[in-house]
Simulated scan of single mutants.
Amino acid sequence: MENKNRPRSYIIYALTAAALLFTVMAKPDKTELDTTQAKLNQTIKETKDINNEQYQNQTTKKVINLPKSKQKVATNLTKAISDIYGNASTKELKEEFKKLQEVLGKDFLEKTMGKPQQLYTKNDSTIVSFGDTSNLSEVPITINTTYTYKNSVGKKLHTNKMFMINYNFKKTRVTNENEVELKPVGSDE
């Protein structure tokens, strides 16, 4: 009887050894594990980067409320031009220079303030009108201002000045400008 069980035990031993050998042989190599782990970490990092970029694009994407933005731009431009052409003293203009520069931009402000402000006595009106707003990076704006100034002999004259500018609503700044000086009312100049 013992002989009959012996072949069975050899079979069990042989199967156990084969299973053990298969387990040892099937165990992945350390470099394979490291390579797989590195690929997994890279994929996770790329996924996080994409998610962060999408989140930042959504939160930093500036949604422009055009009617509100137009009103704010019109108010700021009207005040700035009105102040320069008669509503503010030279001292007040110097104090407000940084704010005027933010509204009008450095180049436009230098061109506008390059004239002697003490000659401007009163701003009668300033009107801001907007052109086509389909391209928010280059919206044409016309500013028409009427003011009183003293000429070189002290005579008060009324005149108009028109500025044609392009305004970038996305960057909230003047992109370029053009000045048209109209003939003073009641003068031969």
Rank of each mutant, 00 (worst) to 15 (best):
M1H: 11
P7D: 14
R8P: 00
R8G: 11
S9G: 00
I11Y: 08
A14Y: 09
A14V: 04
T16C: 10
L20S: 15
L21V: 14
L21T: 15
F22K: 03
F22T: 15
D29Y: 06
D29N: 14
T35Y: 09
Q37T: 14
Q37P: 00
A38D: 13
K39F: 12
I44K: 15
K45N: 12
T47M: 12
I50L: 15
Q54E: 12
Q54K: 15
T60C: 02
S69C: 03
S69H: 01
T75V: 07
T78I: 04
A80M: 06
I81V: 14
S82C: 06
Y85M: 07
N87T: 05
A88H: 01
K91P: 00
E92P: 01
K94A: 13
E96I: 00
E96Q: 10
K106A: 12
F108C: 10
E110G: 04
K111V: 09
M113P: 00
T121E: 11
K122D: 07
N123G: 03
D124H: 02
D124L: 13
S129W: 02
F130M: 01
F130I: 04
S134F: 04
S137M: 06
I143F: 02
N144C: 00
Y147C: 02
Y147W: 06
Y149K: 07
N151Q: 04
N151G: 07
H158L: 14
H158M: 07
M164Y: 06
M164C: 01
N166Y: 10
N168D: 15
K170S: 02
T172P: 00
V180K: 13
L182H: 09
V185A: 07
E189Y: 12
